[in-house]
Nucleic acid binder design. Structure first.
Lengths: 196, 196
DNA sequence: AAATACCCTTAAGATAGTTTAAGAATTAGC
DNA sequence: GCTAATTCTTAAACTATCTTAAGGGTATTT
């Protein structure tokens, strides 16, 4: 447990470092959770009650459309945060799923605990603003790629942006992320290997 | 000028209301700018030096691809914020353009002034966290739409989400936003009017 | 180690979206 | 109000992506 929290503390040093008191205030509000492959952290219809820091492993966040197809909105791997912001802050049922694609360890903080920390520790509020801004920038790049690139180019962009994940995820999951069928991703990959 | 700032003050009441001192601290750091149709607030290669609040009118943010085509990442209308976060915080050249699609009035705050306010006024920092979180949620919905909906459905989603903008923008701009050619949007619209 | 579930590839036919080009309609700027 | 510029529509040919189906390959579970 100590090791996991140290990883989060180290992570926060990339932002405004927390004071020892702030670290302590954060740490005592964390709970650890171990999630097996295919186990859910959040299911459609439930309220997302936690902000989760991924220590190891990998999660996927996805929506299911009216035809029952899954569409991966994001992958969340080590040193990243998973939550459905909309459900978390408004405490309303989520439209999304968060599921482990690998055995995953997370540290979780509850809604009211995080709000308490926001109110009482400017640095924590500040850091989460910066974190969400960085995630916003990444998401905006993804929107741009979606509206301007072909499937082929989106696959290349994914490989460049997540070189580690590419080896860890089945292609079906990557296909769902870039917005094509697995069959079409297969033909894209074929072309790639023939060229290089 | 007073009227414009009042609009921003009213806007902030949707969040944690600023104290009179904070309102004042914010107001004295704002400059007003009037932008004509087709005038740029930001051009590719320039550093984005301001966070801009749109009082009236409408801006578009877009990228230009290697073939010279423009791709609209977002529209920014009344009571919304325009900036290239990535360029603004890292003070590096932007890859994007921000251009007025209507005559537009904005209130601008500079990088170092906003950082000063963040450091000295927790409420302001807090409010910008909440604002960016809301924009993050909207952007995430858009990503989901991009990977799961047909062009037809994306157009309907745009109409539902921005009913006011739909009448104010030329279809070429909407086509660029949803990621199709204007010609194809034209056939989509034809089908729509025939059905209803 | 066998059984099962999942994943990857291939290919043919179908659909969605693009390109090009040209004329008609609308809008912006003076 | 006129003029020029921009925007909108249509259609045909083309390209990208999807669907379906089937067989073989890899993991996971028993």
């Amino acid at each position: 447990m100590i090791g996991l929290i140290e990883q989060l503390t180290t992570y926060f040093k990339n932002y405004f470092a927390l004071s020892p008191a702030e670290e302590e205030a954060f740490a005592i509000r964390l709970t650890q959770k171990r999630v097996k492959r295919r186990q859910f952290l959040l299911q459609q219809g439930d309220v997302c009650r936690h902000f989760s820091f991924v220590v190891s492993g990998c999660l996927k966040m996805y929506a299911v459309d009216k035809n029952g197809k899954e569409h991966n909105i994001q992958f969340i791997a080590e040193n990243d945060w998973a939550t459905d912001l909309s459900s978390f802050y408004d405490e309303k049922p989520s439209l999304l799923y968060i599921e482990a694609v690998e055995p995953t360890e997370v540290l979780q903080i509850k809604h009211q605990d995080l709000l308490y920390l926001y109110s009482n520790h400017h640095t924590i509020d500040h850091n989460f603003r910066v974190i969400i801004e960085q995630k916003y920038i990444a998401l905006q790049n993804r929107v741009l790629q979606n509206i301007s690139l072909s499937a082929d180019e989106r696959y290349e962009a994914f490989l460049k942006q997540y070189p580690k994940l590419a080896n860890r995820l089945p292609n079906t999951q990557i296909a769902s992320y870039i917005g094509v069928t697995p069959e079409f991703l297969s033909t894209i990959r074929k072309k790639h290997t023939q060229q290089s």
